[in-house]
Structure formats: structure tokens, C-alpha cells
Write a protein that binds this DNA or RNA. Structure first.
Lengths: 204, 204
DNA sequence: GCATTAACTGACGGATCAGTCAAAGAACCG
DNA sequence: CGGTTCTTTGACTGATCCGTCAGTTAATGC
């Protein structure tokens, strides 16, 4: 029998390295050598696990997506009512720490690359749809609890998610005008307008 | 005396070509040859007017920005009250025709490139600030007319502008879920929540 | 026509880089 | 140890492409 497979670890190690490079320099400037260096491997090894640079980057995009989603799902359980849950969820998406900011930058690269790549469009459709669905579900719950203003939950989710995306881009681009603090204010304001006084629920 | 200068026309011709290529293939895949072909010139000529590829693309980004802003400014004069003006302005930003969609794609490329380029950050800061300022000003007017809900106009502008950006990205990426029609609904919904019944103004 | 300057061309040099490959190394088993 | 399979390496190749440049064409004034 041969030596045991290290493929799973090695692939993840390379994908993490790829995301680091994409986050730092962008896909355009990404070199396979850079990824290899970050992963402490040779270029040969990178190609041993990923046939082409394109395969590598696409896998990295997907890895980044699912990883973000994974991190967020745990937050759902930690908050009782829908309004808090929404706040916590939104808050966890602000690019304040390095890890979240890096994930955001990779996300942004994915979008722009998707403009010219059908495969990435599908990836976005899938993961982004899931993300939107989670928010919509929380909103739906909040409406049932009388904590959130009535209206199509999916539409409200779109308002919220799109706004966060737009804000995040400006924050990531380093606009002096759009700091994390300001971003939080804007989010809070929108969540405020989406809140309903729990009067009816309390009375009923 | 020598022949008269064609520099102004030629530069614009090249910048337009560059934007076409960026919109179609993205900055990453842009080749100087492509730009030359689109402009019906040789690569030599492109370099005659722009020292490096980087100079060319940066100039194209700026050209795209100012051009969009220019197109929008004329809309301001065509509408009497602030609420209509806001609607018209927002509507004109939906990427429905090819020209607007192309401008959006170039815009998106600018942002992502700006993640790794301080010069482009400054460009974004300048132009995007202007764009946000215009919206804020309309909101301020609308509030004075009693047509728009009270609150910090700049914050409200941020809510609106960010949401449009986020929606546009999803629409451009070709999400089946985010069509132009749906985008318009979401915008309309937000504008609705920002509207105030003109009661006080009518009474006062 | 001739001089002058602007505009333009496209072949070429030189640098970069993705992907290949032959060879070496390492983990396992009997 | 020797056989087997997985893993790793890094030098090399071949392709790509930016930017240069020497030479050409064109518009103008005299």
C-alpha cells in the first residue's frame, strides 16, 4: 500500500493561499508562484492539485464563498428573536477585521470576474441566492413575531443585502467617507425603518 | 506650421475603444491590441497617446466616470419636484440599455482595481463623492418641500446609492433573480419608504 | 516644391509566466 | 530492503504581450 493521501489538507492549504493572494493583489495580478510561496510549496505542487490557474482561482472563489456562509450560520443560533438575529448577522458582515475584509475583497473579485464568465455566474447565483434566502427567512420570522414591518420578505432582503454590498465596496475601496462606523450607522438606520413596534403582537 | 492637432479627438476615440474592451472582456483580459483594433488604429498609435497600458486604462476609467455623471446632470433640469427628480435620476442608473450597462461594467472594474491602487481610490473618492452629493442635495430639497422623510440627507443618500450599486452588480452578473424589472421594484420600494406625505407642506 | 512638425505604422526585443516533465523524495507494506 | 504509489520539486519551454523605434505618411506654411 502507498502512503496516505494528503490531498484534502493540501488543497485547502493551497486554496487559502490563493485567497490571500487574491485579497492582497487581485486576480489580475495573481501569479501561480505567489500562491505557491504563500502555501510554502513549489509551483509544481500547485499544478499537481489544480490543472490550470483558472481551476485554482475558481476553486478559491468557491471556497471563500462557502467559508463565509459557514461562519455566518453559527451566528443564527446565538440570538433569540429575529430582530437581534438580523442585527447580529448584518454586523458580522461588516468588513472590520482583516479576515472579513479579505473575504469581501475576494468576493468582489468574484463578481467582476463573473461579468465575463458563465461558470462564476452560476456560482454566484447559487451561493448568493442562499445568502439572500437566509436573510429573507429571518425577515419572515421577524414579521411573524411582529418585529419587522410587513412586505415581501425577499424584496426586503434584497434591499438590505444590496445595500450592504454597496456600502462594503465603498468601505473596502477605502473611501474616507465610508468608514466601518458610518457603515454601521447606515445599516442601523435601514434596520430601524424595517422595524415594527411589537404592539400588535404584544396586544394580540 | 505643422498639421493641426487631432490629439483631443484621437484620445477620446481611444478611450472609448478602451471602455468597450473593458466592458466586453474586463481589464484583466484587455490587450493593447484589442483597444487599437476597436479604435481602428495600430498599437503604436495607442502608445503615441498613452505611455503605458496602465495610463490608458486609468484615463479610460476616469473618462467613463465623468461621462456617466455628465449624462445624468441633464436629467436634473427636466423634473420639477424633488421626488420625481429622484425617481428619474435613479431610473436613469438602472443598467437597462447597452450603453448604461457597459458604463456600469467599467465602473465595477474600476472599483475592484481600486482595491489595489491608491490613484484609483482617489478617483473614486472624487467622482463617487460628487455623485453622492448630488443625490443628497435632491433629498435635502425634497425634505424642504416636505416630500421626503426627515433625517440626515447624506445618510439617506448613502442608503439609496449603496443599494443601487449592490442591485446593479447582481443584475450585471446576470442573476436570474435580479432582473431590471425587479431592480426597479426594489428601488421604488425604498423610495416609497423615503417619501413623506406632503401634508405639512400643503397645510403650512 | 520643400521644409517642418505631427501622426501613424508594425515588426521586433525583451520580459513575464503558465504549465510540463523528468527525476527525486517520502510513506507505506510485506 | 525493495516494491509501489503518492507527493514534491524546480528548471525549462513555449506562448503571450507591452512598449520601442526606425521609418513612413500627411498636413501645413512659405
Amino acid at each position: 500500500m502507498p502512503r496516505p493521501s494528503v490531498e484534502a489538507e493540501r488543497r485547502e492549504q493551497i486554496l487559502r493561499a490563493a485567497c490571500e493572494v487574491i485579497s492582497e493583489k487581485g486576480y489580475k495580478a495573481l501569479r501561480v508562484t505567489d500562491v505557491a510561496r504563500h502555501a510554502k510549496l513549489s509551483t509544481g505542487s500547485v499544478h499537481y492539485y489544480f490543472e490550470t490557474k483558472r481551476d485554482l482561482v475558481h476553486a478559491a472563489f468557491e471556497w471563500n464563498f462557502s467559508r463565509s456562509l459557514e461562519r455566518r450560520k453559527s451566528i443564527l443560533d446565538r440570538h433569540p428573536n429575529a430582530r437581534d438575529r438580523l442585527h447580529a448577522f448584518v454586523d458580522s458582515y461588516l468588513p472590520r477585521d482583516d479576515e472579513t475584509a479579505a473575504a469581501w475583497r475576494v468576493w468582489a473579485e468574484t463578481w467582476v470576474e463573473a461579468l465575463h464568465d458563465p461558470d462564476l455566474r452560476k456560482l454566484n447565483e447559487r451561493i448568493y441566492g442562499e445568502w439572500r434566502g437566509i436573510i429573507a427567512e429571518i425577515i419572515r420570522l421577524g414579521q411573524a413575531e411582529g418585529l419587522i414591518t410587513p412586505g415581501d420578505p425577499v424584496l426586503l432582503a434584497n434591499v438590505l443585502v444590496s445595500m450592504i454590498d454597496g456600502l462594503a465596496i465603498q468601505a473596502l475601496v477605502g473611501s474616507k467617507h465610508m468608514t466601518i462606523g458610518r457603515m454601521r450607522s447606515v445599516c442601523d438606520h435601514l434596520l430601524e425603518t424595517m422595524s415594527a413596534e411589537p404592539v400588535q403582537a404584544a396586544i394580540g
